[in-house]
């Protein structure tokens, strides 16, 4: 059985239906990439999974458990098992890097402090910021902030990590330091759903690429197959514009 099964999920912003029935599934250890033009609903899929955008229809099953997004307890369960990294990092400005990483593990998960702090240090080392534990976010570059955000999400020990355009807000020379960190996670077998415009990176790490347009999935498949020989005109048109070989 799939680790995460998304079935006919719908979402609305006011009267505008932004997800018109999304279905896909991923296995444990798999990496799925959502690609497509701006406004196609890629980020909304991640937001809906985290209960940040109201889900108006469909079913989501995580490790066999049905999630009901109209039920607060179920939303908590979803947020307990998945973690999201945002495009704009959204580090808590009033806290140090260390406090950002340990807040939820201490207050929400109620794990023991010693364990939480040593894990936080390990994660900061993993993203190459072992010396920044006491820094505040405005003392860090965008790339560093995004790596902290990545470590903060990992500190929650999520079953699935959601990455929402994590390199889109970064200066070009900072993109690779974040992608390297994500690549390390991929190598460790982290289950991830990533929204990205970095096609070369997607091709390298993703097991499955889902091409979206207008709130629907147009086509999905393995990266090489989808990028090189798309079956639909819309996908062919999109990839011919953004892929430079």
């Amino acid at each position: 059985m799939a680790h995460l099964a998304v079935n006919d999920v719908r979402a609305k912003y006011g009267a505008l239906e932004v997800l018109k029935g999304i279905s896909f599934s991923i296995e444990k250890g798999e990496i799925a990439a959502l690609v497509g033009p701006s406004g196609s609903g890629k980020s909304t899929v991640l937001r809906a999974l985290m209960g940040l955008t109201p889900v108006t229809g469909g079913h989501v099953a995580l490790a066999g458990d049905q999630l009901d997004y109209s039920n607060a307890k179920s939303v908590r369960a979803a947020r307990d098992r998945m973690a999201i990294v945002f495009q704009q990092y959204n580090l808590f400005q009033n806290m140090t890097v260390m406090q950002n990483l340990t807040l939820a593990p201490l207050k929400i998960k109620r794990w023991p402090r010693a364990e939480v702090e040593s894990e936080a240090r390990r994660l900061l080392g993993l993203v190459g910021l072992g010396d920044k534990a006491d820094a505040y976010s405005d003392q860090l570059s965008g790339g560093q902030q995004q790596r902290v955000a990545l470590a903060r999400a990992l500190a929650l020990k999520p079953q699935i990590l959601l990455l929402d355009e994590v390199t889109s807000a970064l200066d070009p020379e900072l993109v690779n330091e974040v992608l390297d960190a994500v690549g390390k996670l991929a190598a460790e077998g982290m289950t991830m759903i990533i929204v990205s415009h970095e096609m070369a990176f997607v091709r390298e790490v993703a097991d499955k690429v889902i091409f979206m347009d207008g709130g629907q999935i147009v086509e999905s498949g393995e990266p090489a197959a989808l990028f090189d020989s798309p079956r639909t005109d819309r996908a062919r048109d999109f990839f011919s514009k953004i892929l430079r070989h």
């Binding site: 985290m50 209960g51 940040l52 908590r76 947020r79 307990d80 973690a83 999201i84 945002f86 704009q88 959204n90 580090l91 808590f92 400005q93 807040l103 939820a104 207050k107 929400i108 929650l156």
Partner: peptide, 16 residues
Amino acid sequence: RTQVEAAEAMNLSRLQ
């Protein structure tokens, strides 16, 4: 608002 969303996504309560 994004600061609040980041907190919500970690299951922090409204008061927290």
